[in-house]
Write a protein that binds this DNA or RNA. Structure first.
Length: 970
RNA sequence: GCUGAAGUGGUGGAAUUGGUAGACACGUUGGACUUAAAAUCCAAUGUCCAUUAGGACGUACGGGUUCAAGUCCCGUCUUCAGUACCA
């Protein structure tokens, strides 16, 4: 029987599905292990060879952990809300639910073909109402929570109402909107219901606010900061502008410090932790208030002076402040500008507003700004300081205003030089005639009154103290992390469980969830610019009957309008990991017992592109749910591995400009050409184009002409991200058909280290496929191809070759030889280490060596072949199952126990290595692993003798480490 | 600019705590078996010199530590990724 992988793989995939081999139990005496992949978005293009890379790695680990006696949870699902299905719906009118369903079916088929050990009974889909019911529920819980700084956690909003009713908000320390008006208990109790709601909204962890957002006109929606790349939308590459809109926001800033601290408790790649750290952007410093001159007491009344609050990380340099700069968007700009400067300021502000983000970013070198004509008072010297505006100060960071210290900050320095503003040097022994001095460590302050002679640390402390005495500043920690906008003007997302009474948002009670997406006849925004849900006919809330009803019934008494926005893509993916623990639960998002048992994800594998999106939001929600007592854990993913991207090798053709002629790569420089992508399936392994297929590929190429070199059309090649639009996508189906899923799995692992990006190239796949054939033969009549059989040609048809002769299953009960055992245990050790270190690529080599050695040893002992099959089964599960079955086992190999490594079989002969020592020839000694004390002594003595014979000296020091090399120092 | 990662044959990539660099695979060349092809098996394959025996040089570059450096230290260069006027 030859290795018929197609039959074998189909057989075992069916077997696993029927027997439910990979179902995880929520009750088990075994230790638990949770292995999770980032679930895919089911796109119309299907899976390409890059997708399964991480899945194969996690599958190997999951199968390995099962062999090691763990109760393994290894589920899979779909992140099925998203923009592409909606864009497709806009173009074709096809309902996104239908497209999504079809795409999922295709994904499932492809995933099944690769033989993953997923527990499909726990599948989740974020677009399934049974799933998003709980996404809506979490939203309501966020709405019903506030962040208590004293308890350092989120609490129920009802607690806050109790506090307000008894003592007002004066003693409440919350992370909330900045401009909260203080009130007493009496005042609170006297507020109307609407006033109370408005106040509470300023405290809630999700809140409605008029925010400046990134608006993408082409997509008709708002984008989060991480959905924008270089000033254009990540999807589609459309321009993005700033616009004010009323939006739902998530108060993730409340968790900034805990998100930072939590990074120390999890095992994630350092670059990823770094990028979250940068994103959160903690900086320590002080906030300082500068009063604007003329102080307003001379204006009469008790009006307070205008005050500019700044954030600085260098309060120690406050005496070096020679001007201030406001962002052009700063709210005080209009108020403080003097009449003489008005025109210049207005012109500048307008010019800045017109510049797109992109232009502003592209042009960071040009220094620009305008003097407002106003002055502020230095808190200590009481000197007047000119106030400027300039676009190097960003409205979105800190307070949108800086105290400019040109001697200590290069940007302030450049600005001052450019506009001839004086520069005061406040550093001892430093020359600032050429550039600013920003080295904190070497700082000694001078020319600064009470700060003179102090270093950075002491001066900072003292400056903050003095500012506090004046009531004009305090120590402050500033975070770059902004609250996350949570509204999207889209159709294909989770609807909010929200209706509006008198303009105030109301939550729909959990027992009436889910609020299911309504039908609409078109998926575009409405003519008036409302989100697509504005087109729904049945989209109003009957607060008496508690159901969704037709919109034309809205009476604002019992029937109210529903929220028209939907939630962003990251909503469902922020908590899905818990749904797998108890996927069918209709009464809770997962039962407490299930969550207590499974805790959190032990191993998470996925791409690093989610560093500041999904992986941050998910940590935020988990911390929140933990605070409110819904989750036992505070971090979602204990260990994370980023698999590298598999890149495609694009092919390019060169079209002679303005013609239908295509010139081969070698001759392209003789013409003026433009390059265009061509489908890689039309190219053979030597970069030659299949001209006939190319003409048939697309109608526009039917009458193409070619300028060939040596009768061939050679294309250009370049490695790029795999993408449908670049025609460089390779999907796994063809490979599964031609070489089998096991070959694909082995090959994807063999390609290189998991974390590394690498181009896809099928050239080497015959290597791993050949290994599987050898493995198969190892369990069968292996001698057939190694020695000539004189009868062979008589037995079989001459033309059928070796395949025609039946290979006989050949494992026996024979005793394994020493060599057999050595090979086996060497392999166990290496494979175990490799899997634990996630270096799956090297273990494939280990298998090849093992099979080659055992073949050479003509090993047919069941005692070797059986454990070998278990070792290989995580990598190549189908062939391992088949061989396991043939060895006479009735249970699936998935339940087999991982073989135990026994050091004693690794008997190496003691070896001497030559080294050169002080120009003389010496030897080093390597001891075998299994020697006892006496044997070691004997070996060392023999070794010393050799050394003596060489130069007549005895080594002075001998370091003996069993199993290691002996270091002899003369 | 800043942060992080990495530079090893024709190619992908191996190499424990420093210990025979180039495992394993692809590719290439030669051979066996075939009428032939495919498949399979065997051998060679870092570079240079040499008929052979053998020798020299080799892990981006320049230094250093060490009996011993791909690995550790200092400096330089290059590439990739992330981030960007963050006060």
């Amino acid at each position: 029987m030859s290795y018929d992988f197609n039959t074998i793989e189909a057989k075992w995939q069916k077997y696993w599905a029927e027997k439910g081999t990979f179902r995880a139990e929520n009750n088990s005496t075994k230790p638990k292990y949770y292995v999770l992949d980032m679930f895919p978005y089911p796109s119309g293009a299907g899976l390409h060879v890059g997708h399964p890379l991480g899945y194969i790695a996690s599958d190997i680990y999951a199968r390995y952990k099962r062999h090691k006696g763990f109760n393994v949870l290894h589920p899979q699902g779909y992140d099925s809300f998203g923009l592409p299905a909606e864009q497709y719906a806009i173009q074709t009118g096809q309902h996104p639910a239908i497209t999504t369903k079809e795409n999922i079916a295709r994904y499932r088929e492809q995933l099944d073909n690769i033989g993953f050990s997923f527990d499909w009974s726990r599948e989740v889909r974020t677009s399934d109402p049974k799933f998003y019911k709980w996404t809506q529920w979490i939203f309501i819980e966020l709405f019903n929570s506030w962040y208590d700084v004293d308890a350092n956690k989120a609490r129920a909003i009802s607690d806050l109402e109790t506090v307000f009713a008894s003592e007002g908000n004066l003693k409440v320390h919350a992370i909330c909107d900045e401009d909260i008006t203080p009130f007493t208990a009496e005042e609170w109790n006297g507020f109307s219901s609407k006033e109370k709601q408005e106040i509470l909204l300023q405290y809630r962890l999700t809140y409605l606010a008029e925010t400046e957002v990134n608006w993408c006109p082409q997509l008709g929606t708002v984008l989060a900061n991480d959905e924008i790349v270089n000033g254009v939308s990540e999807r589609g590459g459309y321009p993005v502008i700033r616009k004010k809109m009323t939006q739902w926001s998530m108060r993730i800033s409340a968790y900034a410090q805990r998100l930072l601290d939590g990074l120390n408790t999890i095992d994630w790649p350092q670059p990823l932790k770094d990028s979250q750290t940068n994103w959160i952007g903690r900086s320590e410093g002080a906030s300082v208030t500068f009063n604007v001159l003329p102080l307003r007491e001379d204006l009469g009344g008790d009006e307070k002076p205008y005050a500019i609050e700044v954030f600085t990380t260098r309060p120690d340099t406050i005496f070096g402040t020679t001007f201030m700069t406001l962002a052009p968007e700063h709210e005080l700009v209009q108020k403080i500008t003097t009449p003489e400067q008005k025109e210049a300021i207005v012109t500048y502000v307008e010019a800045t507003a017109k510049r797109s983000e992109r232009e502003r970013m592209a042009d960071v070198k040009t220094i620009s700004g305008v003097f407002t004509g106003a002055y502020a008072e230095h808190p200590f010297t009481k000197e007047p300081i000119p106030i400027w505006i300039g676009d190097y100060v960003l409205a979105g960071y800190g307070t949108g205003a800086v105290m400019a210290v040109p001697c200590g900050d290069q940007r302030d320095y450049d600005f001052a030089k450019h506009f001839n503003i004086p520069i005061t040097n406040i550093f001892e022994g430093v020359d600032i005639s050429e550039e600013a001095f920003a080295d904190k460590e070497k700082t000694v302050i001078g020319n600064s009154d009470f700060l003179n002679g102090l270093n950075y640390k002491k001066a900072t402390k003292r400056a903050i103290y003095e500012l506090e005495q004046l009531g004009q500043g305090e120590g402050k920690i500033n975070y770059r992390l902004r609250d996350a906008v949570f509204s999207r003007q889209r159709y294909w997302g989770e609807p909010f469980p929200v209706y509006y009474v008198d303009g105030m948002p109301q939550m729909i009670d959990v027992q009436h969830l889910p609020i299911v997406l309504p039908e609409v006849e078109k998926y575009l925004p409405t003519e008036t610019g409302e989100p697509p849900l504005g087109r729904a006919d049945v989209w109003a809330w009957d607060a008496e009957k508690n159901e969704v009803v037709s919109n034309d019934k809205i009476d604002h008494k019992t029937i109210f309008p529903l929220e028209l926005n939907t939630m962003p893509g990251w909503a469902g993916s922020s908590w899905y990991l818990f749904r797998y623990m108890d996927a069918g639960n209709d009464t809770e998002f997962a039962s407490a017992e299930a969550m207590q048992y499974w805790q959190n994800v032990d191993l998470y594998i996925g791409g690093s592109e989610h560093a500041t999106g999904h992986l941050l939001y998910s940590r935020f929600w988990v911390k929140f749910l933990h605070d409110r007592g819904f989750l036992p854990v505070e971090e979602p993913f204990k260990k994370l591995i980023n698999q590298g991207m598999i890149l495609g090798t694009s092919a390019f053709m060169y079209r002679v400009s303005g013609s239908k002629k295509y010139v081969s790569k070698g001759l392209k420089d003789q013409y003026e050409t433009e390059e265009l992508h061509v489908d890689v399936s039309l190219i053979n392994s030597s970069d030659e184009l299949d001209i006939e297929s190319f003409k048939k590929w697309r109608s526009e190429f039917v009458d193409a002409e070619f300028i060939l070199e040596d009768g061939k059309y050679i294309v250009g090649r370049e490695v790029e991200k795999m993408s449908k639009s670049k025609y460089n996508v390779v999907n796994p189906d063809g490979i599964c058909e031609q070489y089998g899923a096991d070959s694909l799995r082995l090959y994807e692992m063999f390609l290189g280290p998991l974390e590394q990006a690498k181009p896809w190239n099928t050239a080497g796949i015959t290597g791993v496929h050949g290994f599987l054939k050898k493995l198969w033969k190892l369990y069968h009549n292996r001698d057939l191809n190694l020695e000539k059989d004189p009868n062979y040609y008589n037995q079989t048809s001459k033309w059928d070759g070796f395949k025609a002769k039946e290979l006989v299953f050949g494992a026996t009960d024979a005793e394994p030889t020493k060599d057999n055992l050595k090979t086996l245990h060497k392999t166990i050790k290496k494979v175990e280490e490799d899997i634990e270190n996630f270096s799956f690529n090297t273990s494939v080599s280990t298998f090849m060596i093992a099979v080659n050695e055992l073949t050479a040893q003509k090993c047919n002992a069941k005692a070797i072949l059986e454990p070998l099959a278990v070792l290989i089964s995580p990598y190549a599960p189908h062939i391992a199952e088949e061989l396991w079955n043939k060895l006479g086992n009735s249970e699936s190999i998935a339940t087999a126990v991982f073989p135990v490594f026994d050091e004693k079989h690794l008997v190496e002969s003691t070896k001497q290595y030559p080294i050169s020592f002080n120009g003389k020839m010496r030897f080093m000694l390597e001891l075998s692993l299994d020697l006892n004390k006496d044997e070691i002594e004997a070996a060392v003595m023999a070794h010393e003798k050799t050394q003596q014979q060489l130069d007549g000296r005895t080594p002075k020091k001998v370091i003996v480490v069993p199993g290691k090399i002996v270091n002899v120092v003369g």
